[in-house]
Amino acid sequence: MKLRDITANDIYRGNGPQLIVCILIDASYSMIDPFSDENTRESKIKVVNDGISAFIESGKKDIYARDALDVCLISYGGEKAEVIQEFTNVQNIEFKGIRPNGKTPLKSAVEFALDKIAQRREYWSSSGTSTFHPWLIILSDGKSDEDITETAARLQKLYAEHRLKGKCVAIGRDSDTADLKKLAPNGKIEEMDSMEITSFFSMLSKSAASLSMSTPDADDYGAEIRV
């Protein structure tokens, strides 16, 4: 009897542990402004859009991350948060960029994102699929138009209970970071210029790829995403 070899067509793929990643992107009008550093004349939103595109493309190419990365993109500008991309595997995402649109409803956006993350965890849990600690990444260049006290408390509780990992990034070194600090694990934020934003997304995709090669039980209990 001639024995058959097992190929990729003979196994289940994309059935393994999932890494839930929700990126909250500031789409207020101030994101049209250029960075104050001398590295670029591009607007903040252009640099962020390019960074997100690179993160997604890198995730699609990585053989481990591509099956594990479950990504949602939410912008907040104008009066409310808007889902740019519902949670889906990174391979399904065609990111076309975000256009700035008004105010900075940071509180509503974070609350919205936390609800979406909770729903997504429930979704995976109900199908018996294990997940790593979910990641929430908040990008902002300024102060919230709403009081964020209660939202910050909710977020800090989730960090403390090891139910969420976070990373807060101030877009531009001249940003008003007071609100962002309240939302960050241990009050620690990253203030980044244009070059650092590009580098951040590159490192973020490497961190996601590295984590997705490990197992959920090996995931550490730190509240901050290691980038």
Binding site: R4, N9, D10, I11, Y12, G16, S127, T129, S130
Partner: peptide, 25 residues
């Protein structure tokens, strides 16, 4: 667990064709 999600569907519990090939081996 490293291979269980590759060899069995988590929702239906059905074995992947690879399991039948291993039986032949």
């Amino acid at each position: 667990d490293g291979l269980s999600s590759v060899l069995y569907d988590k929702v239906t519990g059905r074995a992947a064709p690879a399991v039948g090939i291993m039986r032949e081996w």
